[in-house]
């Protein structure tokens, strides 16, 4: 259960602090998604600097709107999984291959190191890790335009 008087705040370093008035001093915590792919808005843990879990949030909506907002803000600034909207060009069909893509975070390029870095998702989409570790999401193939589909098919 969540403590009733739980307070989450951001300090001047943009660090999320967890505080339950009446108990110990505020502690810096980091929100971590338990199922970042399957259920990103459910099951979030607040973890302290030692990696111990300090609070378990079943659904973000269980928090007060202010607290939820701060958790969201922290997560948004820490994590991003751009959704690929279009594949404009791929340098070649062998890996490593550089893809020119458009995402919901703007246009960029990603370098695919091996085809094994494309992981199918249960939803029918894919998750692509570029060589530098950033994850990109690809919607199910039917939602892409023909050109993107054709590029993608060469790597699946």
């Amino acid at each position: 259960m969540l403590p009733a008087n739980l307070e989450l705040s951001l300090d001047a370093f943009n660090q999320l602090l967890m505080h339950t008035p009446g108990t110990a001093a505020p502690i810096p915590v980091t929100p971590v998604r338990a199922f970042p792919i399957a259920a990103p808005d459910d099951a979030i843990a607040l973890v302290d600097n030692h990696g111990s879990e300090r609070l378990w949030i079943e659904h973000l909506t269980d928090l007060t709107p202010d607290n939820a907002q701060r958790v969201r803000q922290t997560l948004a600034s820490r994590e991003m999984t751009p959704l690929i909207l279009r594949i404009n060009h791929v340098s070649r069909f062998a890996t490593p291959s550089v893809w020119q893509i458009e995402t919901n975070h703007g246009a960029t390029e990603l370098t695919l190191k091996t085809e094994d870095d494309i992981r199918p998702l249960p939803s029918g989409g894919y998750l692509v890790a570029d060589t530098f570790g950033l994850q990109f999401k690809i919607p199910p193939r039917s939602q892409l335009d023909r050109q993107s589909q054709r590029y993608l098919a060469r790597f699946l």
């Binding site: 300090d11 001047a12 370093f13 943009n14 600034s77 820490r78 994590e79 991003m80 370098t111 890790a129 570029d130 060589t131 530098f132 570790g133 950033l134 994850q135």
Partner: peptide
Amino acid sequence: DHAGLGLLQLNDANHSKAQWRFTLSHR
């Protein structure tokens, strides 16, 4: 850095004056 995103913060003793982000290709 976390999950492929790098964060550079300019801090003084009391607060963070500026923050910049980049992908780890520029690590």
